[in-house]
Write a protein that binds this DNA or RNA. Structure first.
Lengths: 346, 346
DNA sequence: CGAAATTATGAAAGCGCATCCAAGAATCAG
DNA sequence: CTGATTCTTGGATGCGCTTTCATAATTTCG
């Protein structure tokens, strides 16, 4: 099985290498007879074009670099899947770089400097590989402004915020507002919120959505209904306990991720609050387990697939310098399940 | 920002392109003075080597193709992470192809022919990209013998079985036996099993482990304790109900995945069985949610990361034709949590 | 039927780099 | 100081392909 190239094909088919190239790529008209002859030899010799050589000459690799901060984090695979769908449709290849931040710098991603070196080295490798653009997938929707220099190659960030480059992120504020509206529609007025850490942009945006709803729907604004968690299960548990021991506990709580909502469920059970009868709960993220809990949690589904797909769409626009499409911000969608009911009559 | 190559460097540093190449790769001694001069120009011109050209000439791409049947399935990201760890350590790159079987052929992967074309096209693309080897990640640990022809390039399968090529899979039988041993050690004798579909190799292997334990520990063998589920939550629910309505219900049940175990929990709650007091449960897979349930499920953790890492290790051995290492079969590890207790005195 | 228009093919250059072959510069032994 | 030895550098080739420029084959049509 010796290496067979365009040259061998040409020789055996009695044509020039140019002709072989033309039939291979359909770049130029070739007489049907000649074409057939070449094709036959290609078949016989089981020829497979060498994309490396092709790329060197044509200066196109049809390859996109994808940098994921950590593929093991729940949101990432679905985003990658969206990227893949686009790639399949457009005959693009994906080189995946997994920064493995989780393992390398732990869970504190707030200090961008701590992992910039990994990101930069990843970008550098990708540029050497001649990718035509880069998609950067964060694991927390936080601010990564000025993270890496791509030396002119287009880059699109997703699942994180940046103001120097393009970034695709769902509408956090809207999602939060929508959840509130859903609760209000069912008659709730005393609605608490368990937020994530406030150093995170989406926490602030989601809080904005909450506050906007409070104002717009003229809900009672009770500072004690506002709790700041740390995204972890224990803080959900702890803060829910605080909420439920209030003289006038809320009838519903908006929890900024499903993990904390698990804590909420536990706390409610311990305090003798039945969900949703005594307390309605809306989560965020639509984690798989939210459907396995008892009750099944009503939660905000994130448009992850769309974010991946859309990132690629924008990116290829940048690459080909075609008309920059109007970016439509992907929207979250509330998944109705069992953790919300109207408030009890008092 | 015009393209700068080795040639421009050479010109500006007053050396030949050969010399530049030598300092770049350290392939040959270069006088420190010359070296420094070249390095300085490289710095100044912000030169970045072109891996495409490099690969064409050197005939090495340092690139491994990874084919995942579906990246959104729970086991895959962790395997990829293991692959990445190895790749990082050995300066290898990963081209990821996501077959997206989930979306393209639904959940029935038993008919290999249904998706062979996708696999073959993926392999073909990867070979054109001149990958040095391929890792194939299944989503069900099933038999994929003879799936694709790689035309001589090494391929390693993981999370699936094949007997024509190398495949890395954890020891299913052992895992099942270990779980049984754990239960027996705590005093259980009447142990039921809820298996997955029997068309799957691991189901059979795990059943073997169960049966081996029954024999070895001289447990009562009750055919009614053997239930065949379909991996889904409902079947776990249904079969547990059947188990619990037996005249002499089991004191423990080994459930072949955590999803079905969720059904077990629900059924037990409905039947007034308290877990673990009235029924001990051991799951499989260590899904994230198994730690969020009430009680937290004791489950078999799969060595996914190790499988990825190990696959790469074996694969690079194949590529470099070094001594083929003795394959050590990765082992599952029981995660003790709250769903197992000694049986009640009767 | 023959010249012009059209279509099909080839020869060769070169993408950016690694590396072989040879030669020049520096160093050393005596 | 000279020839032998070692260290350092360059010229040139080619990896497998695309593409330009030029030429040959075929068709069109007056």
């Amino acid at each position: 099985m010796t290496k067979v190239g365009i040259k061998e094909i040409a020789a055996k088919a009695n044509v020039s290498t140019a002709t072989v190239s033309y039939v291979l790529n359909g770049t130029r008209n070739v007489r049907p007879k000649t074409k057939e002859r070449v094709l036959k030899v290609i078949e016989e010799l089981n020829y497979r074009p060498n994309d490396i050589a092709k790329s060197l000459k044509s200066r196109r690799t049809n390859t996109i670099g994808v940098i994921a901060e950590d593929v093991t984090v729940f949101n990432v695979p679905e985003i990658i899947d969206g990227i893949n769908e686009y790639a399949d449709e457009h005959d693009l290849h994906i080189i995946l770089t997994n920064l493995r931040l989780h393992r390398r710098v732990g869970h504190n991603y707030s200090n961008v400097d701590a992992y910039r070196k990994y990101a930069e080295s990843a970008v550098s490798d990708l540029l050497s590989k001649q990718v035509e653009g880069i998609v950067y997938i964060g694991v927390h929707p936080r601010d990564v402004t000025g993270l890496v220099n791509t030396y002119g190659k287009p880059i699109v960030y997703t699942y994180c915020y940046t103001d120097q480059d393009v970034s695709i992120q769902y509408n956090d504020e809207q999602a939060s507002f929508d959840a509130m509206q859903y609760l209000v529609d069912r008659g709730h007025k005393r609605i608490a919120i368990i937020s994530g850490l406030m150093d995170s942009t989406p926490s602030r945006l989601r809080f904005n959505g909450y506050y906007k709803a409070v104002t717009e729907f003229q809900l009672p604004f009770n500072p004690q209904y506002i709790k700041i968690g740390d995204w972890g299960i224990d803080s959900g548990y702890q803060l829910t306990k605080e909420l439920l021991s209030l003289p006038e506990p809320p009838t519903a709580v908006l929890v900024m991720n499903d993990v904390m909502a698990v804590g909420t469920l536990r706390a409610a059970a311990e305090c003798g609050f039945q969900i949703p009868r005594d307390l309605s709960v809306v989560g965020f993220d639509n984690r798989e387990f939210s459907d396995y809990l008892n009750p099944r949690i009503t939660t905000m589904d994130l448009p992850l697939h769309e974010m991946g797909y859309s990132s690629m769409n924008i990116l290829t626009g940048l690459i080909n310098e075609t008309e920059v499409k109007q970016e439509v911000q992907p929207l979250c969608k509330l998944l109705e399940r069992e953790s919300v009911a109207p408030p009890r009559q008092e």
